[in-house]
Design a protein around this nucleic acid. Sequence first.
DNA 1: TTTAGATACTAAACCGGTTTAGTGAATCCA
DNA 2: TGGATTCACTAAACCGGTTTAGTATCTAAA
Lengths: 335, 335
Amino acid sequence: MKLTINDIARKAGVSKSTVSNVINNYLWVPESTKEKVLQVMRDMNYVPDKTARNLAGKKRHQVAVIIDTEQNNYFNDAFFYSILCGAESVLSSADFDISICNRNQLTNEMLFMDRFILNGGVSGLIIPAHILTETIKSRLVKDLFPFVVIGDSKESSIMSVNISNSVGSYLAVELFASKGYRSLAYVGGSFNEIIPSERMNAALKACGQYGIRSCIIKECPDTVSDSYNAMCELLSSSEPPDAVLCNDNFSALGVYTAVREKSLSIPDDVGVITFNTIPIASYLNPPVTAVKIDTFGLGVKAALLLNEMLLSASGIEHIHHDIIPELEITGSVRM
Amino acid sequence: MKLTINDIARKAGVSKSTVSNVINNYLWVPESTKEKVLQVMRDMNYVPDKTARNLAGKKRHQVAVIIDTEQNNYFNDAFFYSILCGAESVLSSADFDISICNRNQLTNEMLFMDRFILNGGVSGLIIPAHILTETIKSRLVKDLFPFVVIGDSKESSIMSVNISNSVGSYLAVELFASKGYRSLAYVGGSFNEIIPSERMNAALKACGQYGIRSCIIKECPDTVSDSYNAMCELLSSSEPPDAVLCNDNFSALGVYTAVREKSLSIPDDVGVITFNTIPIASYLNPPVTAVKIDTFGLGVKAALLLNEMLLSASGIEHIHHDIIPELEITGSVRM
DNA sequence: TTTAGATACTAAACCGGTTTAGTGAATCCA
DNA sequence: TGGATTCACTAAACCGGTTTAGTATCTAAA
């Protein structure tokens, strides 16, 4: 038979309310009684039932993190996993269970509502911006349901954590400019995707601002071979760039390959910086200067905000938090 | 006020037991009544409370998946994420909530017990072999607690899903042999790690079996630069290998770089096959023939087994299931 | 001496379902 | 026609905690 709070109460010679108070530090219980009860709990190896606590208490010690995995899209996956782990590290310590759910399980909005809002299973939600439909959003807001959005969310009524891709581009261009590079190419990604387009636009602006002569946007899939081809084209053009900003590590690899093939030097002839959503820059040879996107930190921040919302009953101010990328400078840019 | 089963019962003019029976298809309820109740549920937008169902019913519709993430070890992370997603896809459909927990939250065995076994929060567990201590294992077995181990587990009393690394090596060596390659090198990984050592041992055996003349084991970290150096050494030795089996994609990249630098041809002069825990082989140029490790499938299988254990009260036969890798043959091996 | 307030507890309601045991009416069979 | 079954349904106990409202005892102030 499973141990219950009643067993402890009986053994300790107190009521179950007192045991509950000891467990939760809710009402003041004198040290002597408290110690007696705790001793019995230890002796009997008692752990309160989580489900019962959830049901009896108003709040559930459980939050959900929605992820969006497409099998075989490994950039995307690494991104979400890292966020998930960041969120987990915070929420676990804050005594929350983390429920995960993949987007593809939520084939329609009603299912989503049922699973996360109406059934009362979780008391908070972390959700990527692109999954949050208008219907769901307004429902959450209407119900005062605590949630944090991952990604760009302009609305003031909601809480969000975003990565400042533009700042990443600015930092990269600024570094290039300060080291005397004069013309830039952006390799990889597509203007049609949100994240690359943010980076590209910022790179264009930054080039104007920091006096980089020209800025070529070279869209292509983020594979080694596509970026290799793209870079070959650029190098054989009339005015080849002397600085390349890559959309991700594999683009960087392709660029490296093309540059070396022309017997050009990195960083002397061509400087390379890459966006780095997953920390693999150091696996490359030589290491690439990277705009480090701290996805783990993104998860951490989202979880902290959620936790804050969950604790303050009064409802805290809604904020949009930006994760500012940092440059990890290595040998692929002139000293 | 939150909608409860009582509201539905009242509105539909039946008892809450009847509503419960309709929800669960437990006792036979005539179509007419059933439809009436369902209609009320739809009209009122009622969804049963998950926590209450968990508490009232004997079993909890929730299982935990333990992951083991070290920040910045991206091979490792991708491995677990993929397993997690596989498990999620099965368990979500089977009406389970998936709780995740990272190993580093479980600083000691007692904490683990508390969180997953004693507090009754989950009714099943998926756990990597290296996290399962003897104490925890025997406790789980003693309590008849359903769990599935990811990885190698020799014991008959437990359920496990493992990747057959040896078969991977055999397949690779067999292919090399059949295409006329004569001497092999294994690049990457370390004999001290479980997975690489399994692969290396199998490769050694397979070479004997398939008539590959020599088999050099070249241990090194799985980075581009380390494997590049390793491969350079091999190529400048007196008897360079004409076939290379790589421990992972980045080793393969290093090997590629070294081979091309010597102006040798892949696959004519040197054939390359790589183990591929995460599906990025196609990002490389040219694509590498890969021993595909289906980690997603691993998660799926583990979840299926767990689900089976959870459903059959009688306790099912304990099995060890092996995930057999497949070869994805591309241009890096002679046709 | 009375009383207001604090202290140390507890009984009982409650959370929102599931499940058991049982009831009244209709049907079946001999 | 009466007893046994089946049918359709329900009352009430239960899951294991939390929380509210309240009680008995003691202390301190009026």
